[in-house]
């Protein structure tokens, strides 16, 4: 019956169950020695999908190692949807649980989170970023009550590893045009990803800036977000931070003034 045959194909391909493939041949599949062509097509094509989504990791571990990781990932987390631009969201979680990879390169899961954020931003819905002039007419006392919505492409990733430095090691299909700050520091880094128009930006944020954007993402007013930022970083500079996000396109064009 068709459901059994299809289940056996799944087991014999992504399930890597040699007995299932043999049973298909015993059950009347002809030229069964070619069954491996299907298994090969599936693993190879999905490895290609993951290479495109995680080019830095592919570059850092090398093609052969990446193929091993990809094959194990495909077997553990097969795609559940045919639109493969959305395949790979579980790669970071998979890497975190994959001892051989994490043992040597413990930053890999967080780097995968940055690369996935870039992938999501690339395919996310388009929207108009907030222009600086939009706030110009507002009285200064109104600022604290503003709720600035984030652009739909914005993603935040915090890591104990220098993921922003690491991510820069491989060019992406749509690389950021933004210049990077000259100082490259080690240790923990916080990254904001956004795509205000066609290009994806990957920006390193200070602890205060990261807390600021995180608070806005949680629905806080500008005043509350500034307080959270000052708590995270003594030298937090609100006006410089706002100016950077306004010119970079971090905010959505819809602005709500909280009059309460």
């Amino acid at each position: 019956m068709l459901p059994d045959l299809q289940a056996a194909f799944r087991a014999g391909t992504i399930g890597r169950d040699a007995a299932a493939a043999a049973a298909l041949s015993a059950g009347g599949m002809q030229n069964g020695h070619r069954f491996g062509i299907y298994r090969n097509n599936i693993f190879k094509s999905l490895t290609g999908v993951l290479e495109a989504a995680f080019p830095t990791i592919r570059n850092l571990v090398g093609g052969e190692n990446f193929a091993v990781l990809a094959h194990r990932f495909v077997a553990a987390y097969p795609p559940r949807q045919p639109q493969l631009y959305a395949y790979g969201g579980d790669f970071a979680a998979f890497l975190a649980g994959f001892a051989p990879a994490v043992g040597e390169l413990p930053f890999l899961p967080d780097l995968a989170r940055v690369e996935w954020a870039v992938n999501e931003a690339y395919f996310e819905a388009d929207a108009e970023p907030l222009a600086a002039g939009h706030l110009a007419g507002l009285a200064p006392e109104g600022y604290a009550g503003l709720r600035l919505g984030l652009h739909p492409t914005v993603r935040l990733v915090a890591s104990d590893w220098p993921v922003w430095d690491l991510w820069g090691l491989e060019a992406l299909p749509e690389p950021s045009q933004n210049p990077r700050p000259p100082e490259k520091q080690g240790g923990a880094q916080r990254v904001l990803v956004r795509r205000p128009e066609n290009k994806v930006d990957v920006v390193m944020l200070t602890p205060g800036d990261f807390a600021f954007v995180g608070a806005l993402a949680g629905g806080d007013t500008l005043g509350a977000a500034a307080t959270a930022a000052a708590g995270a970083e003594a030298e937090f500079d609100l006006s410089a931070c706002l100016a950077g996000h306004l010119s970079g396109g971090t905010f959505h064009s819809r602005v709500i003034v909280d009059t309460s």
């Binding site: 019956m1 068709l2 459901p3 045959l5 299809q6 289940a7 194909f9 799944r10 391909t13 992504i14 299907y38 097509n41 599936i42 094509s45 999905l46 999908v49 097969p78 795609p79 559940r80 949807q81 045919p82 493969l84």
Partner: peptide, 25 residues
């Protein structure tokens, strides 16, 4: 052809048996 079974998407155009059952499906 087919690609999905048990909700898993096997990224290839997989062959059908050419039976009345498969034709109905």
């Amino acid at each position: 052809s087919w690609s999905t079974t048990g909700g898993d998407y096997l990224n290839d155009l997989l062959p059908l048996p050419y039976t009345e059952e498969a034709l109905d499906v």
